[in-house]
Structure formats: structure tokens, C-alpha cells
Design a protein around this nucleic acid. Structure first.
Length: 828
DNA sequence: CGTACTAGTCTTTTT
DNA sequence: GACTAGTACG
């Protein structure tokens, strides 16, 4: 009995087909990771391939980590020399070694979207581009798309002929690349592009890696863009042992340049390719799969396949529509609480998936109130928070003085009385001499134009230089603590009476512990490497499956994951599929959304609950949306509840026969423009809803909502979102919306997100002067009162680097650790 | 030079 | 609704 006996026939074929190009079309839950890991094992064990010659590429660090772990489990030796990593880290690793061939320094920095925008702003000013007409975002988006397609500034310029906007973008593109080069920086897209350029320019380097990577495997191949395709093509062109795994039905990253043709045309590029389809699903029940199959069947231009399982039909899918997003959230949270109570499921068995990050909010509020532990994946990246970016900018400056963006970010943070005029002068000086901003600072006393201000700049330079020299014998932990202290960053934060100062502190502590754990887990920790790891983390990477928490995330983040109990929330036309795609005249966009729906449905192992709301607040505007078309594409027999009969004939017809259609037919309701007609909802229901939700009487609402006032927006299919134009809906009176403060700024995937502590954050009360340095009017063993938690006993008081950390056992809320300065505990 | 306030924008999805 | 960039003011 070998480890391969547990595989099914197709999986075996995929594992044993080691030579030449292989395309594995792996449906959701068909065990592709198993195939990949067994394939690696087979190569090493049976084919005597040196682990050193094997490369596996994934899209996220999490996927890479899992793969390495599982290979470790079966191979047992040599697995650390297998190259398992993401596209981006692979490229960084190669570039760190060879980028000098392209005229960069080895310690280049990686710019995130924020940094990119800063650079682009400067460029727009320089090129006198009116950012009202042409936004930085747009330009950067265009540049990013160009890079995804390996289009250089020069080529872009040539293609821009005759198009004024494109010409402007071309100019900006050129300047942007020059600016990055000057700062010795690369953006995300550059990581791939520059590696391809390197391979094209230096055949010896390419050959080195071709000889090294004799067996290449690429996961989630449907998500590769043209640049990534080319990178892989170059690497594999010598050995041709390229095995790609993907599912065209799960291609959901077109907006990021993913080219679905890469997988659809694989056999054209590699005519000798062996194609293997994995259709047996080991994850879900047949009902879940039937639903997924029925939905995805409405797409054209896909490789035909149908998932099946021998798991049995399983439970029906649950469907529920609610009056408001609050009710929806309430239901989901209660349902999870019920499952937990009845021991049907643990918290970590449940995940809530939605289309947009913003939808997490309403859910979060309910979870906090219910006291159920949860984690939100994504949203604002931990490393994108202001205080974290500030500190990283210090580290970057110490690491690479050529990074102008970093230097300018911190030159006056904390305030050093250095103003805009001084900065402009310094920049002019730097431009004249073609030196970096930081180098200009070093010569501050030479800059005639700034006069006395030079005196403010010199201490900054001295400080940075000191950090640099200390770095020789310093640990990174010591460095960051030194930075926090010497710059006065913490002192400033403590002195500020900003509401979120406390959560900022927590974030900083979180950063320190990340640095510490980085140092602990790496043999030769370096500042550059730390900064690089930090730049390349994905939201999903931080998810810890061992925590017993409900996970909230977007459908995009959920790809590759599975949960026994899945809730698909916000299934409304206008939300999902999004308004943008419904109004778009490119039918491919709806298809991409449908693939996203397919991804969502197939995340469920046992139980799938689909919910939607009749009304929902989106960007401060209440919208009324019909049930998502994707729900209507699910055969009614698979749902435990009928998709509600909306009093609109066409709509009903559409719902009724959608399952019968092999493909989404021409829209039954006239395309597009804004039409004046009353809403499509049952008037009574809507009236009741208005009364409950907005405080307006049903009468009043309908007076405002008469035809001519209510706009059925141009959703193309006439089913649109209705709203009262130009008039913001009054706040729902029945619903308490707690102010979010520290929750918003909570450390990325913070550890203790229990209800009580989060509730304290929601109350947003912690202001006040810090007690640091002084003494406390209570001591260990004393009884104290906290504004939110009530009374408790002080267990421990520890003197931290900048404040006392007080551990209190509260009578109601349990044990908490808090900063004395913020907790404002009163002795009783 | 630093701040407090206002007006405008926005993400749909992310390495 | 929330966040941000820009401006007017001290």
C-alpha cells in the first residue's frame, strides 16, 4: 500500500504524468492540493528528482505555506530545498540577487498603493496634469494594466498616438518609472515585469534558473496575467516540465490582469500537453454542487465540466430574505449562536462571505453585541495603517536612503517644525544635482534657499545616521524600540488626545511583536528582508485556523478555503452582481461575477445559507435591491424556501425559467437608461419597511417616492435599485449604530476579539492624559472601576516601556490587560 | 507653520 | 457613511 493508492484514477494520472506540459483542470474541492503535494513527493521518491530542482508557485503565502507543510508531511526530507513560494516573493528573491543587471541596488524597496499614489501626485504636478480630469488612481490603474500585459512606457506611448488621455498617461508612466528608479524602488507589478526583463536581458541568469527549476508547478493558473505567463514560459522553456493547475470557472481576478486565455489556450501554446480533468468533489454535498453547477452553467466560453460527489445529497440550501441589512446580520449571527448552542457547529466551522469589504461592518456590530468571537479578513491592511506606515518609513529610510517617499513621509513626523516650503526647496536642490532627497538633506547647510531651517534638518539626518551605525550590532527589536523612543513617536501619541491613540499603540505593539517573531523564525534576519516580507503579505495570510472564531471575508479572499457552514450574505442584484457589472455593457463582467458566485457556493461543505436584504445602506445611501439573479439560477428544488414572489410579472417569469436556460439570454427589459417608474416592490411591504426603518411614514415616503421622484436606476434589466434622489434617507431610528473607533483600527486579525473588549472599543470613550511616568493611585489587589467593564480587582501592574500595563479581573467582563493611561481606572 | 473645518470622492474584488 | 484632500485661519 503506497500513499498514492488513496488517489482516484484522474488524480493518479496527474501525479504520475511528470514529464512534459500538463494541464490539470481541477474543479472546486477536487483535491488539487493533494495532487500537487503527492506529485512533488512522487518526483522526489520515485523519479529521483532532486528537491532543489522543483518549484511550486502559488498566489498567496498561506497557500505556499500549506503546500510546504503538506509536502513535509509526506516526503519527510529535503522538502526545505523545494522552492515553494508566491509569484511575488519568487521574483523578489531573484531580483535581490540580480537586479544590479538592470541598474538597481540590491536593497530596493517595494512601494505599495499608497506610496505609488504619493509618487504619482508629484508627477501630475510636474506634468501639469489636472487631477480633476485625470485622477492619480486612473493613471496608476492604466499603468498597472499595462505592466500586467508587459507593455513598456515606450510601447504605451506608441499605442497612445491620437488619444490625448493616453498620451498623458504615457508621459506619466515614463516619469513614474524614472521616479521609482531614482528611489531604488519597485511597485508590485514591477516585481514580475523586472524579472521578465532580467531574463530577457541576461540569458545567463535565465539559464541558471532554467537549469535549477526543472520541474515547475503553478497553482491557480487561471489567475495568472500575461506577465506571469511569460515568466513561467521563460523558466519552463528548456525543460518543458510545466504542470499547471487551475479551474477556469474560478477565474475571478480579471480586474487585476488575470488572463483567462492562459488556461483556456494552454493546449495551443503547448500542443503536446496532457490534459487531466478532476471532477470528483470531496468537499461538498451533492445539493451544494448541483447549485454551483446550475449557476456556472449560465456562462459561455468555459471548459465544460460538472462536479459530482459520492457524499450524498445533504441538506437543502437555506434561503432567506430580510427587510434590512441589520435584520440579515441579526439572523446570521443568531443562527450561528444557535448552531453553537446545539453543538451542530463550532464558531470556526462558520464563515460569512460577501461581495464587498464594507458589508463586514453591519455583521461585526451584531457579533460584538452577541459576544461571539469573529475575525474579519482583509479590509484595511494592518501594514497600511498610518502609524505602521510611519514606522516602516523610518525603517525604510534607515535601510535605503534613496527611498524618497519614505523619507518625505517621516521628515516631519513627529512634528519637527519642517514645513512645505522647506521641503520644496530641498527637493529643488536635489533635482538640480540629481541626488536623492535624503542626500540633499545631508547637505542641508549647503542649501542657501532654506536659511535657518537647515538647523531643523540636521538633527534628523544625524538621528538616521546614528540608527544606521547602530544597526551593525543591534537587533531589529532594539532598533524599532530605539526609533519609537528617540523620535518621540510614542511620546507624541501618548500626549495626543485623539480618540484612537490607544488602538494606535496596540498596533505599534503588534508591529513590535511581528518584528520579534520575524527575528525568531529567521536564521539571518535583516532589515531589508523584514521590510520585504511585510510588503508582500496578503490579508488571508494572517488567518489562523486554530482560533475558534467565525470568519468574515470577501468572496475573493475565500477562494481556496472551505467551511462546513457557509453564509453567503448580501445576495442582491446591485450588490452581487455589483451595480458596476450590471450596468457594464461588457457581458464578460457578469460572467466573472458568476464565477465568483460559483466560488462562494463551492466553499460550503455541508451547509449553505443564502441571505439578502430588501434595503441596504451603501455609501450613505439606502438602496432597495431585488434578489440576486444568481440565486434565481439555483434550481428552486434545492432551496428550502421559495425565492420570494416579487410582484412584477417579468421578474417572476425570469425567476421561474432561469433554471431551464442553458445560458443567460437577452435581457427581457430594455437596456439601460434611467427610467421613471415606481419601484418594483410590493407597495405595502415597502411602506411598512419605510415606517420601521426610516421614521418616515409610509404615506410620506410614497409622496416622495412617486414616479418622477423615485428613480429606477439604470440597471439595464429594469430591476433596479430605487431611491429618492437628492435626499438622504433619515437614519433608521430603531437601530443603534455604535460608533466604530478602535474596532476599525484594531490590529490586523487581533488575537482577542471577544465581545466585551470590542464593545468597549465601540463605545469610543478612551480619551485622557496618560499616566506614564507618574504613579497610579491604585495598586495590586485594589478594587477599581472601569467606565465600560464596571468593577474589578487589580491582579497585576507591570511597568511597560512607556506606561503601566494593568491586568484587571472584572466581575462582569473577565480578565483584561490595559494601559493605565487609557483605561482611566478609578479606585473604589 | 500648524490647525480646524469643509467639500468632495469613493472600492467591487487584491498580490 | 467615512475618509481624504484642500483651504481658510490663527
Amino acid at each position: 500500500m503506497s500513499i498514492y493508492d488513496t488517489l482516484n484514477e484522474q488524480q493518479k494520472r496527474a501525479v504520475f504524468q511528470t514529464e512534459g506540459p500538463v494541464l490539470i483542470l481541477a474543479g472546486a474541492g477536487s483535491g488539487k492540493t493533494r495532487v500537487l503535494t503527492h506529485r512533488v513527493a512522487y518526483l522526489i521518491d520515485q523519479c529521483n528528482v532532486n528537491p532543489w530542482n522543483i518549484m511550486a508557485i502559488t498566489f498567496t503565502n498561506k497557500a505556499a505555506g500549506e503546500m510546504r507543510e503538506r509536502v513535509d508531511d509526506i516526503v519527510g526530507f529535503g522538502s526545505d530545498s523545494i522552492w515553494v513560494s508566491t509569484f511575488h516573493s519568487t521574483c523578489v528573491r531573484i531580483l535581490r540577487r540580480y537586479i544590479d543587471r538592470l541598474g538597481f541596488d540590491h536593497n530596493f524597496t517595494i512601494y505599495d498603493t499608497d506610496d505609488q499614489k504619493t509618487v504619482m501626485k508629484d508627477i501630475c504636478k510636474k506634468l501639469q496634469i489636472d487631477t480633476k480630469m485625470l485622477k492619480e488612481r486612473t493613471i496608476l490603474g492604466a499603468i498597472s494594466s499595462a505592466k500586467d500585459e508587459l507593455i513598456s512606457p515606450l510601447t504605451y506611448e506608441m499605442q497612445a498616438a491620437g488619444d490625448f488621455t493616453k498620451q498623458r498617461i504615457a508621459g506619466a508612466y515614463k516619469e513614474y518609472q524614472a521616479a521609482l528608479k531614482k528611489s531604488n524602488a519597485l511597485d508590485f507589478d514591477d516585481l514580475i515585469v523586472k524579472t521578465v526583463e532580467l531574463f530577457q536581458a541576461c540569458p545567463d541568469v535565465l539559464e541558471y534558473y532554467q537549469d535549477r527549476f526543472r520541474y515547475i508547478m503553478v497553482d491557480e493558473y487561471q489567475d495568472t496575467n500575461t506577465a506571469q505567463f511569460e515568466l513561467i514560459r521563460l523558466l519552463a522553456s528548456k525543460s518543458r516540465n510545466l504542470c499547471v493547475v487551475g479551474d477556469d470557472d474560478q477565474s475571478i481576478y480579471k480586474f487585476r490582469g488575470a488572463n483567462i486565455r492562459n488556461i483556456l489556450d494552454f493546449e495551443k501554446v503547448y500542443p503536446e500537453a496532457v490534459v487531466i480533468k478532476l471532477e470528483q468533489n470531496y468537499r461538498s454535498t451533492q445539493n451544494v454542487l448541483d447549485a454551483a453547477n446550475a449557476v456556472i452553467r449560465n456562462n459561455v466560453g468555459r471548459k465544460d465540466k460538472a462536479l459530482w460527489t459520492d457524499h450524498g445529497a445533504g441538506a437543502l440550501l437555506h434561503f432567506k430574505q430580510f427587510d434590512s441589512a441589520y435584520d440579515e446580520a441579526q439572523y446570521v449571527v443568531e443562527d450561528i449562536a444557535k448552531k453553537k448552542r446545539e453543538r451542530i457547529a463550532d464558531y470556526s466551522d462558520c464563515a460569512i462571505l460577501f461581495r464587498t469589504n464594507a458589508q463586514a461592518r453591519v455583521m461585526e456590530e451584531r457579533f460584538v453585541v452577541a459576544g461571539i468571537p469573529y475575525d474579519v479578513v482583509g479590509g484595511t491592511n494592518f501594514y497600511a495603517r498610518r502609524e505602521i506606515k510611519d514606522l516602516l518609513a523610518y525603517l525604510k529610510t534607515i535601510d535605503n536612503g534613496r527611498d524618497d517617499v519614505a523619507v518625505k513621509r517621516i521628515i516631519n513626523v513627529p512634528k519637527r517644525g519642517i514645513g512645505a516650503t522647506t521641503l520644496t526647496r530641498v527637493q529643488e536642490y536635489a533635482d538640480e544635482r540629481n541626488i536623492s532627497f535624503y542626500d540633499a538633506l545631508r547637505e542641508a547647510d549647503q542649501i542657501m534657499t532654506i536659511g535657518k531651517s537647515a538647523a531643523k534638518l540636521t538633527p534628523f539626518v544625524t538621528m538616521i545616521q546614528t540608527f544606521r551605525s547602530k544597526l551593525e550590532y543591534y537587533s531589529l527589536e532594539e532598533l524599532i524600540k530605539d526609533v519609537l523612543e528617540t523620535t518621540g513617536y510614542v511620546a507624541q501619541l501618548e500626549a495626543s488626545d485623539e480618540e484612537d491613540a490607544e488602538s494606535r499603540m496596540e498596533n505599534i505593539d503588534e508591529l513590535i511583536s511581528k518584528i520579534v517573531s520575524y527575528e525568531e523564525t529567521h536564521d539571518e534576519p535583516s532589515l531589508s528582508e523584514f521590510l520585504e516580507e511585510v510588503a508582500l503579505v496578503a490579508d488571508i495570510d494572517g488567518v489562523n485556523e486554530d482560533d475558534n472564531k467565525v470568519l468574515l471575508m470577501t468572496l475573493h479572499s475565500a477562494k481556496g478555503l472551505e467551511f462546513p457552514h457557509v453564509y453567503l450574505a448580501g445576495m442582491e442584484d446591485g450588490v452581487f452582481p455589483s451595480y458596476m457589472t450590471i450596468t457594464s455593457d461588457d457581458p464578460a463582467e457578469i460572467e466573472e461575477e458568476r464565477r465568483l458566485a460559483y466560488v462562494g457556493i463551492t466553499r460550503a461543505k455541508e451547509d449553505l445559507t443564502i441571505t439578502c436584504a430588501r434595503s441596504r445602506m451603501i455609501r450613505g445611501e439606502t438602496q432597495y435591491n431585488p434578489v440576486s439573479r444568481f440565486v434565481k439560477e439555483i434550481p428552486p428544488a434545492l432551496l428550502d424556501q421559495k425565492v420570494p414572489g416579487i410582484k412584477h410579472k417579468d421578474f417572476e417569469d425570469y425567476a421561474e425559467d432561469s433554471y431551464e436556460r442553458s445560458h443567460f439570454k437577452a435581457k427581457p427589459f430594455g437596456m439601460g437608461t434611467t427610467q421613471e417608474k415606481p419601484g418594483i416592490f410590493d407597495k405595502e411591504k415597502l411602506s411598512r419597511l419605510q415606517e420601521e426603518g426610516t421614521g418616515m411614514s409610509g404615506e410620506e415616503f410614497f409622496r416622495k417616492a412617486k414616479p418622477g421622484m423615485v428613480t429606477v436606476s439604470s440597471l439595464g434589466n429594469g430591476l433596479g435599485a430605487t431611491r429618492v434622489p437628492g435626499e438622504a434617507m433619515p437614519k433608521p431610528k430603531a437601530v443603534v449604530t455604535p460608533k466604530r473607533t478602535s474596532l476599525q483600527n484594531k490590529p490586523f486579525l487581533s488575537k482577542a476579539q471577544d465581545g466585551a473588549s470590542a464593545l468597549a472599543g465601540l463605545a469610543g470613550v478612551s480619551k485622557g492624559a496618560p499616566a506614564a511616568g507618574g504613579s497610579l493611585d491604585y495598586s495590586e489587589g485594589d478594587r477599581v472601576r472601569h467606565i465600560k467593564y464596571g468593577e474589578g480587582t487589580v491582579l497585576k501592574i507591570e511597568e511597560g516601556p512607556r506606561d503601566f500595563q494593568v491586568t484587571v479581573e472584572f466581575d462582569g467582563a473577565g480578565q483584561k490587560v490595559m494601559y493605565a493611561a487609557f483605561a482611566k481606572l478609578k479606585k473604589v
